[in-house]
């Protein structure tokens, strides 16, 4: 599971640079949460595109997560990238004043989509492509909001497990405070990924790595020392989140159909 951080940095910077230039963009925009993934993404983008070509949007809800806002700002300052703070509470509160909700997931998802909506508007306004920050762990277990934090133009981090992102972050010089933070989806104060899933990221990643990268059957992962309950939990999270990793199916009724037999690459003619 160990990565080679300098090489990974080189490949990911080349990826960001090449993809943007293919689409005739020189700028990238990132939603900065003050957490590990978006900080790493900002470090890579600043290196690949130059700090002046990177915009970080800090999108807190009211005065919650003050420390995260401070950390996001410190990342922007340290990298010399442009950043902007936009409080999403007026938009979110207006909506929920009409359709009240107590379900934390509904509220959290709405916030994630509000941020997405602002990022896409700023993407057009600033002529900057959105760099995604979802890592491989989150994408595999479906720990993200569809059309929310998973929405982006390109994703440099999607093939790195959370623990590998941490390894890369240490190499890139991401501040110690951010490295030491408990990962959180930030849907509500005090929420932590590990608390919610009931496993540490080290455990989740080890299990995922054996199931996915090494193509091991679940029994082999259990035999390697993980509890049946943990392995089955991870498996069911993977199975139940396929819809977040795919374009929705189109009912095929014609002789040539998008997604079925009209097959072109994302980078078509780029």
């Amino acid at each position: 599971m160990k990565i080679n951080p300098p090489f990974v940095e080189k490949v990911l910077c080349a990826f960001i640079k090449e993809e943007l230039s293919k689409f005739h963009y020189s700028r990238g925009i990132i939603g900065l949460s003050g957490g590990l993934d978006s900080s790493v993404c900002a470090f890579l983008a600043a290196k690949a595109l130059g700090p002046k070509n990177v915009i970080g949007l800090i999108l807190p809800y009211k005065k919650t997560f003050r420390e995260d806002v401070r950390d996001a700002r410190s990342v922007a300052r340290r990298l010399g990238i442009r950043s902007r703070l936009i409080d999403i509470s007026p938009m979110v509160d207006t909506y929920f004043s009409r359709f009240p909700a107590r379900d934390k997931i509904r509220i959290g998802n709405k916030m994630a989509r509000e941020r997405m909506s602002i990022l896409y508007d700023f993407s057009a306004k600033e002529k900057a492509l959105i760099l995604g920050t979802s890592n491989k762990t989150e994408l595999l277990i479906g720990y993200g909001t569809i059309h929310g934090d998973t929405a982006c133009a390109i994703n440099p981090l999607g093939d790195l497990y959370k623990t590998q992102v941490r390894e890369l972050a240490a190499h890139l010089g991401v501040p110690e405070r951010i490295l030491a933070k408990k990962p959180t989806a930030g849907l509500w104060p005090g929420q932590t990924d590990e608390g919610e899933i009931g496993l540490s990221y080290e455990e989740i990643d080890q299990i995922l790595f054996q199931l996915v990268d090494d193509r091991q059957p679940p029994e082999a992962v259990i035999a390697a020392g993980f509890s049946r309950e943990s392995v089955e939990k991870i498996l069911s999270l993977i199975r139940n989140s396929e819809f977040k990793r795919k374009m929705p199916p189109i009912a095929k009724i014609s002789s040539r159909t998008i997604g079925h037999d009209f097959l072109y690459p994302y980078d078509r003619n780029r």
Binding site: V11, A14, F15, E18, E19, I154, P265, Y266, D267
Partner: peptide, 8 residues
């Protein structure tokens, strides 16, 4: 070298 649809 280069990238296509994320393949390096």
């Amino acid at each position: 070298v280069g990238f296509e649809d994320g393949k390096a």
